[in-house]
């Protein structure tokens, strides 16, 4: 391969036209309540696993809504299932349950 001394930049725009929203629909069949999230950040502020690395439960949820499942897969494994997120959420979202569900959906729905 010929080197020109630079590389093409990856386009980071979320392309909602092409995003895979089928898993979001599958999620909606499995669990309710997560649609209420207003992105207040309480869960990520209090999360045991956040802060030490890139894990951020609020952002994981937002990525799901945008159909960005590849990133979700990398992130959700960091959850320690401690339940602190659930304690502080003003919209009564069970984020802990969601993290469990994300992984289940990914193994079931994706070969």
């Amino acid at each position: 391969m010929k080197s020109f001394g630079f590389q093409k930049i990856v386009d980071r725009q979320i392309d909602l036209d092409k995003a895979d929203l089928s898993l979001v629909q599958a999620l909606a069949r499995e669990l309710t309540g997560w649609q209420r999230c207003i992105g207040c950040g309480s869960c990520s502020a209090t999360c045991t696993a956040a802060g030490m690395g890139s894990f951020n439960p609020r952002k994981v949820q937002m990525l799901v809504r945008m159909g960005q499942w590849d990133q979700v897969a990398q992130e959700a494994v960091h959850c320690q299932l401690c339940g602190k997120c659930r304690l502080v959420c003003p919209r009564d979202v069970d984020t802990r349950q969601l993290m469990l569900e994300f992984k289940k959906l990914q193994t079931i729905s994706r070969p």
């Binding site: 950040g41 309480s42 990520s44 502020a45 999360c47 609020r58």
Partner: peptide, 10 residues
Amino acid sequence: KAEDTLTSRP
């Protein structure tokens, strides 16, 4: 403790 949601950092 809070999250600065605009920079995504606790």
